[in-house]
Every structure is written in C-alpha cells, then in structure tokens.
Simulated scan of single mutants.
Amino acid sequence: MISMEDYRKIEDITIKMNCGMHGKKLNLYCKKHEIAVCVTCIASEHKSCSSSNVISIEEASKRAKQSAADLEQLITRTLENFKYFINNREIALENVDKDEQTIRKTIEDTRLNLNEYLNELERKLLLDLRSKHANCQSQYTKSLRQLNQKRIEKENLKEQIIKMKHSASDIQVFLGTHQCNKAISEQIGSRKKDIRFHTDTSMKLEIDPFINSFMEEVTQFGEIRVTETNVGQAKTQTHGSKQNICNISLQLKQKFYIKGCVVPITGCIILSDYRIIFADYTGSMLMEYNNKGKHIRDILVDHRPFDLAAVYSDRIVVSYGVSKYMEIINTNRENEGRM
C-alpha cells in the first residue's frame, strides 16, 4: 500500500503487473532467463529451469531500489555522452561555417586579380560551394535534432525512474526497471554505434595552379573539397569532382645517371625508405641506388629480370619474362639471400 500522493507521482509510469502472454499476475522470477513470469509460464516456457532458479517476485525485488539507482546512473552517463556529442556537433557546425567564410573570402580576394572572363567559372564554383555547404549544414542539423530528441527522452525517463525509486513499491520498482532496462541497453548500444560513425566535415578551397594563364588552360575556377573525418577514428573520405588529367603538369624533381649509359632497364621500383632498385635485363642483376642517386650495390639474380614489385619494405618480387616464374628477394644488407 502507498499513499495517494505517492501514487500520483507514478501514475503516468506504465508498469506491466500481469503476464503479457497469459494475463496472469507476475508473481515469480526466473533467475536463469532473468525474466518475471506467471505460474503458467513456468509450466509451459520454463520446464527445464530448476526450482532453485525460480523464486518469488518478492524475493527477487529485494534489491530493486539499488537496481533502479544503477539504471539511473547508467542513464546519467548516457546523457553526459549525449551532451558531449551535441557539443561536438555544434563545434563542427561552427567550423564548417568558418570554412565557408574563409573560402568565400579567398574566392573574392582571388577574383580581384582576374578579368571578366572568370565570371562564369566563379558562378559555377560558388554554386558548388553553396550546395556542399548546404549538405553539410543539413547533416549536422539532422544529427543535432536526433541527438536532442534522444536526450529529452532519456531525461524524461530519468525523471520517471527517480519518481519510481522514491515513491513506488519494491515490486513496482523491480518490474519497472527490469522492463525498461533491456530496452534502454539496446537503445544505448544502438546510439553508441550511431555516434561512432559520426563524421566531422570540413571544406577547403584549392585554387587552380594555372590561374595566371587561365585564358589558355584553365577550365575551372577552383574546387571545393569536403573532407569527412570520423570522430572515433582517423579515417577520412574526400568528395569532390576529380581533376581533369589534362590539367595535371609533371615537374622534374631530381635527375641522376645509372652506371652504364646503354644499360637496358626493364623495371624500376621505389621502396618505402626511398631506395630505388632497377632491373638490369642484360646484366642479370638488380641495381640499388639511394634517393640522392648514389649507387649502393648490385644484387645478382639467376636470370634476366623483367619487372619488380614491392611486397614489404625489405622484400621485392622479381619476375623473369623468359623463365615464366617469380622470385621474392630480401633486400636487407645483412641478408641478401633470396626467399
């Protein structure tokens, strides 16, 4: 028995006191399956459960208040996580707005040095920026709306748990917390999984390197790149139109000579430590150089090497065109043997 005043505090909290399958009072508890049951459930669904696993609901609910307190703490921690990720989303939204402002200013400053020919290219780029910025805003707004809704739901549930803990009977607290605990755990697990895949979006502007000679070569004002960085991981994804290969210009970084000016080189590979290995088809050997062009050594092989490929930082695969087989070679100085 509880007072009417206490009852009014929990009358809006739905607690099932009867079995949903048989309609009878939930007066037993199966410890093996961790579920409240009626007498009919024991006879039909829990035949294999030992008598020691089936106890009265009164005995099972002795620590109900503590269970409610544990559930309250779990919800509190979840709400703290929601607050953290909401703040994270809000900061990310501010950053993408700053990116948009920075890019717009860069575009405007660059535009001052161009003539009327760039008007159409500028218009296309700004439309692209507006579209990508709108998409970023939409993603963050949707994420914030969902997070705020879940936060409100958990705050309401927390308030109900507090009311039930202070005013309801042990049985009501036990059944109430037991019935919502599993659902809450599933929701928390689902929400953690969703939060894990939240990404931060930033936008950058890449001005075309040939902007000074645009009358002859430039076909676009620039490119808006939207980079999504996973909040929990370092993985990034870049979206945007690919640069036309016709606009790519190669630049010579370094030049050095290979010993023997008429050596027929059939293969070349650059290792992770910047060593360069050439395949000398006629000399039946591999020639190793450093990134400064200094010859390090020759690695003799049994046949004429045709091509090379890296397996690890110290192992390469050598193919022999005539012999039709491949060989893995260890390139360490201490161990020059083949594997």
Rank of each mutant, 00 (worst) to 15 (best):
325 Y>P: 03
70 D>L: 03
306 F>T: 00
245 I>N: 03
119 N>P: 01
168 A>M: 00
237 Q>G: 04
73 Q>T: 00
118 L>T: 12
95 N>Y: 06
51 S>M: 08
251 Q>H: 15
259 K>I: 08
37 V>Q: 12
70 D>C: 02
217 E>P: 00
184 I>S: 08
137 Q>H: 10
58 E>V: 05
156 N>Q: 11
170 D>N: 13
312 Y>R: 07
50 S>W: 06
282 T>M: 12
120 E>Q: 12
298 D>M: 02
319 S>K: 00
320 Y>G: 05
239 H>W: 01
167 S>E: 00
209 P>N: 00
322 V>I: 06
215 M>F: 03
207 I>P: 06
259 K>H: 13
212 N>T: 08
308 L>Q: 03
147 L>H: 00
167 S>R: 01
120 E>R: 13
171 I>N: 11
137 Q>A: 09
48 S>E: 15
331 T>H: 00
219 T>G: 10
175 L>R: 03
277 I>S: 10
267 G>A: 07
96 V>A: 07
310 A>M: 14
162 I>P: 06
280 D>M: 02
267 G>D: 05
242 K>C: 03
171 I>V: 14
12 D>C: 09
47 K>V: 11
199 T>G: 12
212 N>K: 14
247 N>M: 14
105 K>M: 10
144 L>W: 08
30 C>P: 11
149 Q>Y: 15
223 E>A: 04
69 A>H: 01
252 L>G: 07
263 V>I: 03
63 R>Q: 14
301 V>R: 07
69 A>D: 05
329 I>W: 02
284 S>I: 01
196 R>V: 04
36 A>G: 00
241 S>F: 06
9 K>C: 02
17 M>E: 13
309 A>Y: 05
309 A>C: 12
208 D>P: 01
190 S>W: 09
146 Q>Y: 15
139 Q>R: 07
5 E>I: 11
188 I>M: 08
214 F>R: 15
196 R>C: 06
175 L>F: 06
243 Q>E: 12
79 L>S: 07
58 E>F: 10
241 S>K: 11
289 Y>C: 06
334 E>F: 07
85 F>D: 06
141 T>S: 09
334 E>V: 02
165 K>G: 09
337 G>H: 04
152 I>G: 00
64 A>P: 09
288 E>G: 01
79 L>T: 05
206 E>W: 01
21 M>Q: 15
140 Y>H: 00
263 V>N: 04
8 R>L: 13
252 L>E: 14
74 L>E: 13
58 E>I: 05
67 S>D: 12
30 C>G: 11
6 D>L: 12
149 Q>L: 13
61 S>Q: 12
39 V>H: 07
309 A>E: 11
249 S>G: 13
319 S>F: 05
